[in-house]
Simulated scan of single mutants.
Amino acid sequence: MEKVMRLASQKGVVIFTKSSCCLCYAVNILFKEIGVVPSVYEIDKDPEGREMEKAITRLGCTAPVPAVFIGGNLVGSTNEVMSLHLSGSLIPLLQQCQSLC
């Protein structure tokens, strides 16, 4: 869990993904479309990936990937991010942590 939290707090927006996950790709594109370049960590390419996936689940993410952190805090997976975006709450959240370009 330490590695996940360390990586999640290094940048304003951090997404833990798997290289073959289409939902991970969609969330990544959403952030890029609104002007945010997230740090993306593909956990399936990390030797500690399985442990990272377990840690993300223990933190409360409904699906292990994509796991989105904003300002070092877990926002959630695809459903949570899309809900925030559709309700108009995502951009203000990003602005609070100064991640919006």
Rank of each mutant, 00 (worst) to 15 (best):
G88S: 11
M82C: 08
L90E: 07
V65D: 05
L86E: 13
H85C: 09
T78N: 12
L94P: 05
P64L: 03
V65W: 00
G72R: 07
V75W: 03
L94F: 07
T62W: 08
Q95H: 02
L100K: 03
Q98G: 10
S83K: 13
L93V: 07
N73V: 07
G71A: 07
C97L: 06
F69I: 07
N73S: 10
S87I: 03
G71E: 00
G88L: 09
F69Q: 08
P64C: 12
S89R: 14
L59M: 14
A67E: 09
N73E: 15
S89H: 12
G71C: 09
A63M: 12
L93P: 13
N79C: 11
L90I: 05
L94G: 04
G76Q: 11
L74M: 06
T62N: 15
E80A: 10
S87L: 07
L93F: 03
G71L: 02
E80V: 08
L59H: 03
T78L: 10
N79K: 06
M82V: 13
G88D: 15
S77K: 08
V65M: 08
V81T: 09
M82H: 11
Q95D: 15
F69K: 10
G71H: 06
L100D: 06
G76E: 03
A63I: 15
L59K: 01
N79E: 14
G60H: 09
V75R: 00
C97G: 05
Q96F: 08
T78S: 14
